[in-house]
Amino acid sequence: MTVAIELSNVVKTYGDFRAVDDVSFAVEEGTICGFLGPNGAGKTTSIRMILDILRPTSGSISVLGHNVASEVRDRIGYLPEEKGLYKKMTATGVIAYFATLKGVPGREATAKARELLDRYGLSAFKEHKCEALSKGMGQKVQVLASIAHDPDLVILDEPFSGLDPVNQEVMEEVIQDLKSRGKTVLFSTHVMSHAERICESIVVIAAGKMAFHGSVAEARALLPSRVRVRGENIEELVSGLPGVNAVKPSTDGRADVLELHIDEETDPRSLLKLFFDSGKTLDTFEVVQPDLHEIFVHLVGEEAREAADR
């Protein structure tokens, strides 16, 4: 597998402030990578450096096999975090314009723009001026503008923000489509559920530093497996069970539910059997898969709060 994006020890400073501090990761070609981190973690700065809009203070970046993204910028599509379009241009015009800037011939670009608008449910708005589009529609148009030139690498900064649930699904579809055609996608978000559904790998940064890089499964492994139980007089029982490392009140806030942190090797089903054998009444027993949200809070919670306090 070749690597589409590789960052090695990238640092970006503004005066004394280290916006990005020694970040290294790689994204394999043809995969979807989620770029996660709290607000102000340095995601956008990193993305701008990948795109060669900003230059790193130190460290190196390679994109599609080149050291400078501007050499291959026609093969990259980019959706910035803050979305905006030329108000007076039509949806077709904007998409076609951005495609021509990427080297697509004018007529082809217009045809491609119309085709994309048809495919993603904006047929009726092809000749509407952008100022007449709703926020969500405008954002869709911008996403289409970033992929109209059929790029090999697509970088999306917060593609889901501002979209309603239906359009969030459309967005996921767009990303999946890209992947199925062998494209590489890097997208940043702080909504974990999207990343969880579509990403092969995730990169988490906090306060400019790397917090995690790996597959979703690896990320899950960062948190212990847990079982939530509720029953009468079981406190004594649970603390003595084999494989249970700790007993805590449930993190989901329900009263009298206990959360058992168990060894990785321990099969929850064996615990359930032990409960049955003990004869205690049990009205809740659920195995909790750590979701990315929890992992995220676990990884960056402290930094994010600190950042908010600053």
Partner: peptide, 17 residues
């Protein structure tokens, strides 16, 4: 100023110098 305030500038800069 329109390009700047709309942040279109970022897309432009990913395509042109």
């Amino acid at each position: 100023i329109e390009e700047k305030s709309n942040r279109i500038i970022e897309v432009l800069l990913s395509s042109v110098t």
